[in-house]
């Protein structure tokens, strides 16, 4: 589903990623681990085309990203749901934030309502549909972002430090939610610095350090 081949990314004199090669299969749930500044977020940003690699090739769902036309980028991004580290929730109600992912895809308002409520129920946020993000706790905001990322049933779900500021119980709840989503066939890639998150999960873990892929193993 996702294939990196000798991918490098530089920022001025800084190496964010160096010759990274790995692949993640369709329907897999995998972790990208490593300390802060290891290149985890950059790796995810390359997948959803917020950045372009300086060297190497990158394929998502069989599409070679290197030769992609600018006009095709939105359509690739629609195959990918992203749980941003900084949430990126808009100053609208939770309902409207989640519905946005569907409106962008041109889905009619009639269909949007049941889909959004169903997804909010799944992340246990149905009762907060009319709340604004500023009125939500960190865990609730995280779940609202997850709802927005999964509501359109993307092929791939990318999560950047999805449990960053959460207490252990809420974090465990979110990982359970990811497992449920993965069980429905969605490929999931989670970037985290928290080793507890993938311990004993039986999922593959790719560890980055200073932009290098230093190990591959099973959590």
């Amino acid at each position: 589903m996702i294939r990196f081949f000798n991918v490098s990314k530089f920022y001025d004199n800084l190496t964010a990623l160096r010759n990274v090669t790995f692949s993640i299969d369709k329907g897999e749930m995998a972790f990208i681990a490593g300390p802060s500044g290891a290149g985890k977020s950059t790796l995810l940003r390359l997948v959803y085309l917020a950045e372009k690699p300086d060297a190497g090739s990158l394929t998502v769902d069989g599409i070679e990203l290197e030769n992609m036309k600018e006009s095709e980028i939105p359509y690739l991004r629609r195959k990918i749901g992203v749980v941003f580290q900084d949430f990126r929730l808009l100053n609208r109600t939770v309902f409207d934030n989640v519905a946005l992912a569907l409106r962008i895809r041109g889905i009619s308002e009639r269909e949007i309502k049941p889909l959004v409520y169903e997804t909010l129920k799944m992340v246990n946020l149905r009762h907060k549909a009319d709340s604004f993000p500023s009125a939500l706790s960190g865990g609730e905001q995280q779940r609202a972002v997850i709802a927005r990322a999964i509501v359109a049933e993307p092929t791939v779900l990318l999560a950047d430090e999805p449990t960053g500021n959460l207490d252990p119980d809420t974090a465990a709840g979110i990982i359970r939610l990811f497992k449920e989503i993965n069980a429905r066939g969605t490929t999931i890639v989670i970037a985290t610095h928290n080793r507890e998150l993938f311990r004993n999960t039986g999922k593959r873990v790719f560890t980055l350090d200073s932009g290098n892929l230093v190990s591959q193993g099973v959590g």
Partner: peptide
């Protein structure tokens, strides 16, 4: 600006 950046990352077209 931030909102527009988010829309882009969510897959919005230029027209949208």
């Amino acid at each position: 600006k931030d909102e527009i950046e988010t829309l882009k990352l969510l897959g919005a077209t230029k027209g949208f």
